[in-house]
Design a protein around this nucleic acid. Structure first.
Lengths: 235, 235
DNA sequence: CGCTGGATTGAGGCCGATCAACTTCAGTGG
DNA sequence: CCACTGAAGTTGATCGGCCTCAATCCAGCG
């Protein structure tokens, strides 16, 4: 199965790697810190990571795959609060209320690390460097999705595509990638209907700014896309 | 001047009060912690607290008055990112990037405490309880303004009014209060025009849900307002 | 092959933006 | 006290972008 999870993924970039039980396993010498990562979990597409109103106990780091968080509005419509990619962390919003505010579900096969919040707290005040990185991680969440406020559908979708591409491949600057979510999910995130998302895709393609074929996207005029995201009108 | 700042405001609720130089001054005995609050600043209406792209060095706690943060879109239109009231903290979003992302300006006379971030970090890992409260404060920021995503102007404005009322008077449940910002500011925050804000106010008043007289607002049917905020249609 | 859910495309309607006229308010100076 | 002035707020008419509803197309799959 081309989508299957690697059970020993690279964890080099992870803030918590030095404290991870998986890292410990692969070391021959005794490790100075106790492990704080409780366990690794494997989710299949559509499996829930947690439910809104569940008691908050852990943060999660995504090793591989994609998670979406959402809530249901009174009409039963799904409001997507965020997409989370490999290497990103999820669950911060629950720190202040003590319960998860949204539901989190896998939209591909996923591997996550669970990190009990109490143990994070214990650890933080003994390791200043870790504390600093942790605060960076939370602060970053404050800036994700700022473009949802943009006025026009074109702006929001252009920003979304640039955002997704950058987060799917944090190191490379890829111009071609596969959208991991449906038009409906994109619409629910950007507060647009699936029809509008589809129409804007078509319009971008007509103007030769991108090529869209099913879930495959290719940036043709990257600069034009960036200008649209910034609020410029069409040439 | 009825709007003038008290120079020795109550600081009881402040997370950093035990470490505050003002608190120190008013104690006759030696204090066990070094002061981390650099200085108190007084701003007049329209004074800037900081500018977007300024180097990040401090967080600010608002003692009195109201701050708005905003950025300018390419057309020069002001996008308001948030309003901040007494007892709230501001500047977190800059932790991850190292520079302030927005500009912050006083929309009334304001008194703030400046807290150098480096000293916060030093302090946090020696005081676990403070660390916990600090993380709560940041996490809370993740949830502020979620209602901006609401579909209809009525929903957004109803939610906004409830939000404002609760934050202006954190302890009491006041049904009557004075809006501290203009219709234009409300619109720039909710992504509506000032005209639409005005029209929705009128509509609410016609339906006897609130009474609006200039900047004075009085909730008549609080439940109806809450239902509108939740996305219910008019009766 | 047909089935099924997602994606696309079209026609029509509604909400909020725009533009403009008018009113009200706050501040100033005579 | 009033007159003046500029900013803020209200109200109306029109326009345009996105939603709704519906039909069709397409990919993946047994």
């Amino acid at each position: 199965m081309h989508n299957s999870i690697q059970h020993y993924p690279r964890c080099d970039g992870c803030t918590f790697s030095p404290f991870c039980i998986m890292t410990h396993k692969h070391r021959s010498f005794a490790h100075p810190y106790p492990a704080i990562v409780k366990k690794h979990r494997i989710l299949k597409r559509h499996d829930m990571l947690y439910l809104a109103k569940n008691k908050f106990h852990s943060l999660f780091i995504i090793q591989e795959g994609i998670i979406k968080t959402y809530q249901l509005d009174p009409d039963g419509k799904e409001l997507i609060r965020g997409f989370y990619f490999a290497s990103e962390a999820i669950g911060y919003e629950a720190i202040c209320t003590g319960e998860y505010l949204f539901s989190a579900v896998a939209i591909s096969d996923v591997a996550v690390c669970e990190i009990p919040y109490e143990r994070v707290l214990e650890l933080l005040h003994t390791k200043p460097a870790l504390q600093k990185r942790f605060l960076h991680l939370i602060s970053r969440q404050l800036n994700i999705g700022f473009y949802l406020a943009a006025e026009h559908a074109e702006q929001r979708l252009a920003s979304f595509l640039l955002d997704i591409a950058a987060r799917l491949y944090p190191l490379e600057n890829k111009l071609e990638f596969k959208l991991p979510m449906s038009r409906q999910d994109i619409g629910n995130y950007l507060r647009l209907t699936a029809e509008t998302v589809s129409r804007v895709f078509s319009r971008f393609q007509t103007h030769q700014i991108i090529i869209v074929k099913n879930k495959n996207v290719c940036f043709i005029q990257l600069d034009a896309l960036k200008q649209i995201a910034e609020g410029m009108k069409y040439p």
